[in-house]
Amino acid sequence: MANSKLYKGSLNTIILKLLEEQGKMYGYEITQKVKVLTKGELSITEGALYPALHKLEAEGLLDVEVAKVDNRLRKYYKLTEAGEKETVNRLAELEEFIRSMQQLVNPNWSIN
């Protein structure tokens, strides 16, 4: 697995971005989606995912929905209106961060 410390600060943004794309997702689905998208390079542990989800929910950036699926109840997370706006801001911040890092480690590289 890649150095998880490098991803830690971007976890909330990753979650927001995924929810923006998928509409609504449940906890386990998020861990699996990240694994698939990064070809197994990054795996979000349960211990990191849920505190992030609960913090985003408490901040009012995520809303929850519950549905009955396969003999059990499933809690889905989706973006609130404030969450949608925050996703745009955080993605712009992340993009800017990636650009700055690239400038530091490889000055000839361009994101565009």
Partner: peptide, 14 residues
């Protein structure tokens, strides 16, 4: 428990 149960069950199914 509701949230954990779904996560544990989904992970077990996998």
């Amino acid at each position: 428990r509701m949230e954990l149960l779904d996560h544990v069950a989904s992970a077990i199914e996998d």
